[in-house]
């Protein structure tokens, strides 16, 4: 009845992992902070290299392609494209390791 091996729905076989379909407002807040932290790292690198008169291919591509946190739409911040989901969007918190990967772009046309 009690203890670590009690019979609950998630434990009694089957996949019943309840991940809410949308992010909470606090998750969104922390996610925005993480996006901004990545932006600041990239801008620091860019400024440091520019001061030495150097540039980097990877950096140039990032600056052209990737929007900053402020330029992103809420839709792109909190959801990602998924071809298997109805209406092609799912919450970004369903992406594996979503707090440690940069996922900001959509495939063309979406």
């Amino acid at each position: 009845m009690f203890g670590p091996f009690r019979l609950t729905n998630p434990l009694s076989g089957g996949l019943l992992w309840k991940i809410p379909w949308r992010l909470s407002s606090h998750q969104k807040y922390r996610h925005r902070n993480r996006l901004r932290a990545v932006d600041s790292v990239v801008s620091t690198l860019d400024r440091a290299l520019a001061r030495q008169g150097e540039s980097m291919k990877k950096m140039d591509r990032w600056k052209v392609e990737m929007p900053t946190e402020q330029e992103m739409l809420p839709k792109d911040k909190y959801t990602v494209f998924d071809r298997k989901v109805k209406r092609y969007r799912k919450g970004i918190h369903k992406v594996p390791k979503w707090t440690k990967v940069s996922q900001r772009l959509n495939p063309p046309g979406f």
Binding site: A37, V38, V42, L45
Partner: peptide, 21 residues
């Protein structure tokens, strides 16, 4: 020291680190 090669390495791990010049 600030260099392209180190900057490239940091780009790989930019989500995990805090960088200051």
């Amino acid at each position: 020291p600030v260099s392209q090669s180190v900057a490239g390495q940091i780009m790989r791990i930019k989500e995990l680190v805090d960088v200051k010049e």
